[in-house]
Computed example of a mutant assay.
Amino acid sequence: MKPDSTQRPIRVVLADDHDLVRSGIKALLSMIDGVQVVAEARDGQELIQLVESLEPDVVMTDISMPRMDGIAAIAHIHARQPKVRLLVLSMYDTVDFVKRAVANGACGYLMKDAPPFELEQAVRSVMATGSYFSPTIAQRLLQPSEPTIDDELTTRQIEILKLIAQGRASKEIAFELGLSPKTVDVHRARIMERLRLNDIASLTLYAVRKGLVKP
């Protein structure tokens, strides 16, 4: 059933750091009656700025993006504009990602390999009912989950782990976060102890698996 042509279109802001992926998703969304992509962002900071200026109905965002990731952007937008429907479109299907997204304000989660018709289902569902989770994600949520990264590490430790995984030295991390190099080293030791990991390579693999950095 097509929407009434007199109704106001559902205005969407789309965020993904890959231009080709974003263009493909935009093309699919533009084919849906009553849906209008009003802006595109390449990272979380740009997304926040666009949402503040355009006040869309729906935000569809990837998780892993430069400068500010999708989870942080979702949290920021949800705190300031709670009426905006925040829908994650991601390649990550672990319960950890889904729960982090929802805890920060996402109302839906869709996989990037989902069939195109699911895009319309997701957009219409979050507008009509306030939520949408693809069948794959719903199934994951029913399975026992491993501890999330928020269960295992503090916010500061997550920040430091992300920078370690990007290959940054203690002095660089200290400068960026306004800490002393010694404090960074203490945090790194505590992260290793808490995660039971013994080297930087293992920390990096953990950060990739949790989606803090891209492979």
Rank of each mutant, 00 (worst) to 15 (best):
P115D: 06
P115N: 02
P115K: 02
P115G: 05
P116L: 00
P116I: 01
P116Q: 00
P116C: 02
E118K: 06
E118A: 06
Q121V: 10
A122M: 07
V123L: 06
R124H: 05
R124I: 06
V126I: 07
M127C: 11
A128D: 14
S131G: 10
S131H: 12
F133A: 08
S134G: 14
P135C: 14
I137D: 01
I137M: 10
A138P: 07
A138D: 09
Q143W: 03
P144I: 12
S145K: 10
S145A: 15
S145D: 12
E146A: 13
P147F: 14
I149A: 10
I149F: 14
I149S: 10
I149Q: 11
D150P: 01
D151I: 09
D151S: 12
L153N: 05
T154G: 10
T155I: 15
Q157W: 10
I158A: 07
I158C: 03
E159T: 08
E159Q: 14
L161P: 01
K162M: 07
L163R: 04
I164Y: 12
A165Y: 03
A165C: 07
G167W: 13
G167N: 05
G167T: 03
G167M: 07
R168F: 13
R168V: 06
R168D: 05
A169S: 15
E172Q: 13
I173S: 02
E176D: 13
G178M: 00
P181W: 09
K182A: 07
K182N: 07
T183D: 06
V184F: 00
V184Y: 03
D185R: 09
V186C: 01
H187K: 03
R188I: 08
A189P: 00
A189M: 02
A189S: 01
A189K: 06
I191G: 02
M192R: 03
M192L: 01
E193H: 05
